[in-house]
Nucleic acid binder design. Structure first.
Ligand code: FES
Ligand code: FES
Lengths: 144, 144
DNA sequence: ACTATAAAGGACAATAATATCTTTTATTAT
DNA sequence: ATAATAAAAGATATTATTGTCCTTTATAGT
């Protein structure tokens, strides 16, 4: 469904949001351990998330990554996915045709678009704050 | 969503089904032109489809690929996807956790599984014969 | 038997995705 | 100023996916 990069990005973002919500900034080592991802690769992904204003980064001692609580209210999963995987998941043809639209549809088009839209809505309607609140229940995990 | 291999496989299978339905066997060149796919690569994919009894192949003059009409009634898109991409699309965690189940869910699990199941049902409930019938309307395309 | 056709199979090549390593820049505390 | 911490940036390595090329096997028609 999503690329590895995107999966790590989602896990990292959710973890950072969770920690930020309880007032913690987290560094690379902490993040990659918490989400069980390759550290150096995760660093690259965090750079992209920072450049695209999904997360904030502060260098130096007591620095690290964080997300402001206000931002969590509006930031959704779709924003993260778009940074890493672009919008192909929303616009791409299920059968790989170069163009996907109602004018020249592939045989799967209408069935596929219906599901694609549901995925899109789910990702757009799920904010980081919602997930952070969910995770207070302690039944959700970010690794293994 | 699907790998390139799987996309080509789906397009090829639908094209072969369509042609078989009107009594034609089709060869590699015809297929790769009809679905606009790299010919040699498509050959490899057709081998897999043949080995897994999705399509039939006959060597030699007047040979080619075909699917029997009886088989089209039961063969669904899910069978094709599973040959090329395995079942990861049905069983894999949206956030890339090694295990996806209700016992140790990721924060996206329940929302994700709902959509995954819809995709699964769509692919399982769509038979090749249904698509072939749809394509008689002449509004659906397999390339560009 | 010979030739043409067409799929099957094996080896190889190019590209993209994933992952690592090293150096640089910024910040804090001593 | 110096040392320590931590992210940013750049270069490189590994692996998987995608794609091509060449040879072999099977079949049909002459
Ligand atoms: S054209 Fe294939 S999904 Fe829209
Ligand atoms: S555990 Fe992540 S989708 Fe099921």
């Amino acid at each position: 469904m999503f690329s590895k990069s995107c999966e790590y990005a989602l896990r990292a973002t959710i973890f950072i949001a969770q920690q930020s919500h309880i007032g913690n900034k987290v560094n690379l080592t902490t993040i990659s351990e918490a989400i069980d991802s390759p550290q150096a690769f995760t660093a690259k992904i965090l750079q992209q998330l920072t450049k695209n204003n999904i997360v904030n980064a502060i260098k130096g001692p007591h620095g690290g990554f964080f997300i402001e609580t206000e931002a969590m209210k509006t930031l959704n999963l779709s924003a993260v996915v778009e940074v890493l995987d672009g919008d192909s998941i929303y616009t791409g043809c299920g059968l790989g045709l170069k163009q996907c639209n109602d004018k020249k549809p592939c045989p799967l088009h209408f069935k596929f678009v219906a599901i694609r839209e549901e995925l899109k809505n789910m990702l757009q309607n799920t904010t980081l704050l919602m997930l952070v609140n969910d995770m207070e229940l302690d039944i959700f995990h970010l690794k293994t």
